[in-house]
Design a protein around this nucleic acid. Structure first.
Lengths: 249, 249
DNA sequence: CCCTCCGCTATTGTATACATAGCGTATTCA
DNA sequence: TGAATACGCTATGTATACAATAGCGGAGGG
């Protein structure tokens, strides 16, 4: 062991990425205690970086400290997830409001509008292809990231990132959760309409409207998550689903 | 050194508390690089727990990683702080809404009402004594904590804690920041009125009203923070103030 | 047959030793 | 005299050794 280590990235980051992937991919089951030694073997890093990674993942919300020591994979109720989505929507609503009220130049709005147009292009296909859907996920994430950035509020951006750390609470994770629904494309079209309205509201400096539509965006997401979770059969391909405790509340 | 260590709490927690105190008390200036070795000496813990504490404080938002390695104390603009307060208000607004919409029994509302009554009692003094003010800070923090708890949303509670980590963004830190203002007592009375309304709204299951009043509560806080920061002379007694960059935006 | 107590083992928490990279300084050359 | 390069030191990143504790299993007694 330790014969050759990748020196291009720090061992800590490497361990963090590897462990997060293991958690989200379902290799580690919720409630399961994470063995440091095992993590050392699977990640190739030594105990110190592994421990740092574990601490970071705990702060991130994916792990939970065990009183007697060590960490376990956190389990989420369906409500935890829907709350997190609504939470993110509320935060993004504030971001949109900030962007609108603080003013955004046409130059700054450009990338957002390009994003919008690119998504429009994709949605023109009926039904949407797998590749186009994949592009949609990327563009959607970019749209949300740009919106966050336009708030010009690092503390808010930080919180939004945090809120998106939970499984399915990120824009991408959420979209993928719904991909199996029959009405998926219709949902994407409505979501895109929201996107369009928020850009318009920001452009016209209508803070309240910008905020309201982002919150509606999140409520739509919550409703669809519920639908998607009823369709569990279609969702077996999403390993992160295992993190959601079944019938807990 | 290291002759006797306190075994009652973990070294990591001890180091984290000590370092946070050093940051918030101004012993470590913003922008300053934190020396691990120095931290080892001042905290009495060894390098491993110190490093864990540093990682946690970074996630908490008080430290910033230096690209070349190590950490520095983060500096905050006045806007960062006011954004954080508004952010917390928005989150607490959501918590109040959740509490109202999800229903709270009379039994659960009891502690909140007791808190309210106790604060009323304190505010009856004009002018308020130092001891009473100190009690106010505690009771106010308790009120906000209870409110958060009534949302029954662990993810939301987590985010609220996070948002309160920045200097002055916590209920206590914020109240203290205004303590030197001449109109301080009047402010506390208005704030208490907000508290009363939110409890009433929750009791009557008026989610929108509960949310609105908590956001107004935060806006009041932001306005008063601005006032307080103009009165810097009065605030020299608050060392955490040094974390706020002067005239940055 | 079950419950309790003792001891062992495995795993985490802590400390320290080692490697490496970055930065500052000093010296030399142009 | 100034700038550039090389050398060395210091501080961080990493690895591993040591210590303590908690959980578990077995054995003995009731």
């Amino acid at each position: 062991m330790a014969g050759e280590v990748d020196r291009s990235v720090s061992q800590t980051v490497k361990a963090q990425l590897a462990l997060r992937d293991q958690i989200l991919s379902g290799s580690l089951r919720p409630g399961e205690r994470i063995s440091e030694l095992q993590a050392v073997e699977t990640t190739g890093a030594s105990r110190t970086p592994v421990r740092m990674a574990l601490v970071r993942l705990e702060e991130e919300g994916l792990l939970e400290a065990i009183p007697s020591g060590g960490f376990m994979v956190k389990a989420f109720s369906e409500r935890d997830i829907s709350d997190s989505i609504e939470l993110r929507g509320t935060l993004e609503g504030l971001a949109a409001r900030f962007a609108a009220e603080r003013g955004v130049s046409a130059r700054e709005l450009e990338p957002l509008k390009e994003c919008l147009a690119a998504i429009d292009e994709l949605l023109r296909q009926v039904p949407i292809s797998i590749e186009a859907f994949s592009s949609y996920v990327t563009l959607n994430a970019r749209f949300h990231a740009l919106l966050t950035e336009l708030s010009r509020s690092p503390p808010l951006a930080r919180q939004i990132d945090r809120a998106a750390a939970l499984p399915f609470a990120s824009p991408s994770g959420f979209v993928m959760a719904q991909s199996a629904l029959p009405e998926a494309q219709q949902i994407l079209i409505i979501a895109q309409e929201h996107h369009r309205v928020v850009v318009d509201a920001i452009e016209n400096r209508e803070g309240a409207r910008a905020e309201a539509v982002m919150r509606e965006h999140a409520r739509l997401a919550v409703r669809n998550l519920r639908l998607a979770l009823r369709n569990r059969t279609h969702l077996d391909l999403l390993p992160a689903l295992a993190l959601i405790k079944t019938a807990t509340d």
